[in-house]
Design a protein around this nucleic acid. Structure first.
Length: 277
DNA sequence: CGGACAACCTGGTTGC
DNA sequence: TGCAACCAGGTTGTCC
């Protein structure tokens, strides 16, 4: 479900609702969503810690805790990590409950269980399993057009697959890969190594712009993603190709009809008229 | 090595 | 109404 803009929205909301709170009583109900240790150990390690700054790398949340510990959180497809009002009943698929010093509760809920939690007791996130395959964050200053060109050079994979490969640029998923390619006017099936310098530059700018606009709109809600405040994002109203199979291309004067194809088992939406080559 | 694909999960929707 | 098939915002291991 959540890509960089949705995770960034969750991060910002948690920075308000969670930072400064102490985790007074922690329950972890399943071990299969916990990386690196079991559920009891995670609960024990978290209990009594105070939450500091909250960061993000790609689609991962980085929750800094007292005494140098760090909790990593990945929401997978259906995960939510949020502070619930006191007295709110626990929903099905709630895997972590932490009572906070202000009486509210921190909840991790993930029906599909494709998300993960991992504690780095020593704060060495570079050793974390969850970040092993995570490269440069798509919104960081390190992600330059130059670096992007180096990542793509000589590769035969379709550009859409490369955009979603977290080991290189981290944070782009299926929606924003489709949207960035459309804005740049590049076919999703184009082999990485065949893009011109101009196309790479256009795609780099399109990625930064679409992610920035989506963050400003607090993300895209297709089915069940909501912000930390529990409201849907607004970027779904501004999608140009994703989920628009059979509808008309929104680019001025284009007139193409959006098509859906399957690339490495994922749906790709694109305009065959303005995304040629 | 890179790239394609199945597998991991649940739940909602579609179609017979 | 029932049930099977298919789809979903992600990642990882395996195979070629």
């Amino acid at each position: 479900m959540p890509e960089l803009p949705e995770v960034e929205t969750v991060r910002r909301d948690l920075a308000c609702a969670l930072s400064g709170q102490t985790l007074e009583r922690v329950r972890v109900r399943r071990s299969d969503i916990v990386k690196g240790c079991g559920r009891q150990k995670l609960a024990r390690e978290l209990t009594g810690r105070t939450v500091g700054a909250i960061g993000r790398l790609g689609k991962n949340l980085i929750v800094n805790l007292s005494d140098g510990a760090v909790l990593l959180v990945h929401l997978g497809m259906s995960g939510r990590f949020y502070v619930a009002e006191a007295g709110e009943t626990l929903e099905k698929h709630t895997h972590l409950i932490a009572e906070l010093s202000n009486g509210r509760r921190l909840i991790f809920r993930d029906p599909r269980r494709l998300g993960h939690l991992e504690l780095c007791a020593d704060g060495r996130i570079e050793d974390a399993q969850m970040l092993r395959n995570v490269g440069i964050d798509a919104m960081s200053d390190e992600f330059t057009a130059q670096r992007f060109a180096e990542m793509l050079a000589g590769r035969t994979a379709p550009i859409k697959a490369a955009l979603m490969d977290q080991r290189r640029v981290a944070g782009i998923g299926n929606i924003y890969a489709c949207e960035a390619l459309h804005r740049a006017g590049i076919a999703p099936v184009a082999p990485c190594g065949e893009l011109s310098a101009d196309e790479v530059g256009r795609l780099h700018r399109a990625i930064r712009r679409v992610l920035a606009e989506a963050i400003a709109a607090e993300g895209t809600t297709i089915a069940d993603y909501v912000t930390g405040a529990g409201v849907p994002g607004r970027f779904q109203e501004r999608l140009r190709v994703y989920g628009r199979e059979g509808e008309r291309c929104r680019k001025r004067g284009c007139g193409g009809i959006i098509e859906r194809i399957v690339q490495s088992n994922r749906s790709t939406f694109y305009c065959p008229v303005c995304q040629r080559g």
